[in-house]
Amino acid sequence: NQESVVAAVLIPINTALTVGMMTTRVVSPTGIPAEDIPRLISMQVNQVVPMGTTLMPDMVKGYAP
Rank of each mutant, 00 (worst) to 15 (best):
N1G: 14
N1K: 13
N1F: 12
Q2W: 07
Q2R: 12
Q2I: 12
Q2L: 08
Q2E: 07
E3C: 04
E3R: 13
E3N: 15
S4Q: 02
S4W: 04
S4A: 03
S4L: 02
S4Y: 04
S4M: 02
S4D: 01
S4E: 00
V5P: 01
V5H: 00
V5T: 05
V5Q: 00
V6W: 02
V6F: 02
V6H: 03
A7F: 02
A7I: 02
A7G: 03
A8Y: 06
A8G: 05
A8F: 07
A8C: 04
A8R: 09
A8M: 12
V9D: 05
V9Y: 09
V9L: 13
V9N: 09
V9T: 14
L10G: 12
L10A: 15
L10F: 12
L10E: 13
L10P: 06
L10M: 10
I11W: 01
I11T: 00
P12L: 05
P12D: 05
P12F: 04
P12W: 07
P12N: 14
I13K: 15
I13V: 12
N14P: 01
N14T: 04
T15G: 11
T15R: 07
T15L: 07
T15W: 06
T15C: 03
T15I: 08
A16G: 07
A16C: 04
A16I: 14
A16K: 12
A16M: 15
L17P: 02
L17W: 01
L17Q: 01
L17A: 00
L17V: 03
L17Y: 01
T18I: 04
T18L: 11
T18H: 15
T18V: 08
T18W: 05
V19F: 13
V19C: 04
V19G: 13
V19A: 15
V19L: 10
V19T: 09
V19E: 14
V19M: 15
G20Q: 15
G20F: 08
M21L: 06
M21D: 06
M21S: 05
M21P: 01
M21F: 05
M21Y: 09
M21Q: 09
M22E: 01
M22D: 01
M22T: 04
T23A: 12
T23I: 08
T23C: 03
T23F: 15
T23M: 14
T24Q: 14
T24L: 15
T24W: 05
T24A: 11
R25D: 11
R25M: 04
R25A: 12
R25W: 04
R25Y: 07
R25G: 10
V26F: 06
V26H: 15
V26N: 15
V26A: 14
V27N: 06
V27Y: 02
V27P: 01
V27W: 02
V27R: 09
S28M: 11
S28L: 08
S28G: 09
S28Y: 12
S28D: 13
S28W: 12
P29S: 10
P29D: 10
P29T: 07
P29C: 03
T30H: 08
G31Y: 02
I32Y: 03
I32F: 06
I32A: 02
I32M: 05
P33K: 14
P33Q: 09
P33M: 13
A34W: 07
A34I: 07
A34L: 04
E35Y: 13
E35K: 15
E35P: 06
E35M: 10
E35S: 13
D36K: 12
D36E: 13
D36V: 05
I37Y: 09
P38C: 03
P38K: 07
P38L: 11
P38N: 12
L40M: 15
L40Y: 02
L40R: 00
L40I: 13
L40A: 01
I41S: 04
I41Q: 12
I41D: 03
S42E: 08
S42K: 13
S42A: 08
S42Q: 15
Q44P: 08
Q44T: 10
Q44S: 08
V45S: 09
V45H: 01
V45F: 01
V45P: 02
N46Y: 08
N46L: 11
N46H: 09
Q47T: 09
Q47Y: 14
Q47E: 15
V48D: 07
V48T: 13
V48R: 06
V48P: 11
V48S: 09
V48I: 11
V49C: 03
V49M: 03
P50M: 15
P50Q: 08
P50F: 11
P50E: 09
M51Y: 11
M51N: 09
M51F: 13
M51T: 13
G52R: 04
G52L: 06
G52C: 03
T53E: 10
T54C: 03
T54A: 05
T54R: 04
T54E: 02
L55T: 01
L55A: 01
L55D: 00
L55Q: 00
L55P: 00
M56N: 08
M56D: 05
M56W: 05
P57K: 13
P57S: 11
D58V: 12
D58N: 13
D58G: 13
D58A: 11
D58E: 15
M59T: 04
M59K: 02
V60T: 02
V60N: 01
V60P: 01
G62C: 04
G62F: 05
G62L: 11
G62W: 06
G62M: 06
G62H: 08
Y63Q: 05
Y63D: 04
Y63R: 04
Y63E: 04
Y63T: 03
Y63A: 05
Y63M: 04
A64F: 11
A64N: 13
A64P: 06
A64M: 11
